[in-house]
Amino acid sequence: MTDARRESLHDLENAIHQIEDEERTPAGPTTNLVLALAVVALGLAALAGALSLGIGTPERPGSGTWPLLIGIGLVGLGIALALRFRQDSDAEAFTRNSAVVAAGLGTMIVFVAVIETIGFELPSLALMLVWLRFFGHESWRSTAIVSVGAVVAFYLIFVAALAVPIPHLF
C-alpha cells in the first residue's frame, strides 16, 4: 500500500472514530443515582473510621478530627450529586465492550501475582502477547517481535543499566 493510500485510510479511520466518540452512550439516571450514593457511602465509611479513631475536641484535635471533616464533606457532596441524578449526563454506560477492560485488568493482576515467583520477564511477555494479539489484533509476527523486543529492552534498562532489584529470572 502506498504511503498516500495509507494516510488517507488513516484519515478515514480517524474520522469514523471521532463520530463514534461523539455517540458515547451516557449513563442513565439509575447509574447516576448509584454513583452519588456510592459517594455518600464512602463519606459515611470515613465518618465511621473517624469516630473509631477518636475525634477529640476543638482544643485538642485527635486522629479522627480531620477524617471526620472529610467524611462530612463527602456525604454533603454526595447528596448534592444525588439531587442531580436526572440531569447529569457526563457519565458513560457500560457496554458489551466493557468486558475487554476486565480482561485487560486481568492481565495486570496475573502479572503482579506471579512476578515474585517467576520474575518479570515471562509475565511481561505474556501480557504483551495478550494485548498485542488479542486486544490489538496484531499479526503473530509483529506480536512476537514487539513482545520480545520490549522485554529485552526493559531488561537492559532496568536490570542491567539501573540495577533495579525487580524480581527477575535471568
Binding site: 515474585e116 517467576i118 520474575g119 524480581p167 535471568f170
Partner: peptide
C-alpha cells in the same frame, strides 16, 4: 539471534534465589 539472546540471558544470574 533470538536463541543467542536467550542463552546470554540465562547466563546472567536471576534474583529469585
Amino acid at each position: 539471534s533470538a536463541l543467542a539472546a536467550s542463552l546470554l540471558l540465562t547466563a546472567c544470574g536471576g534474583n529469585l534465589g
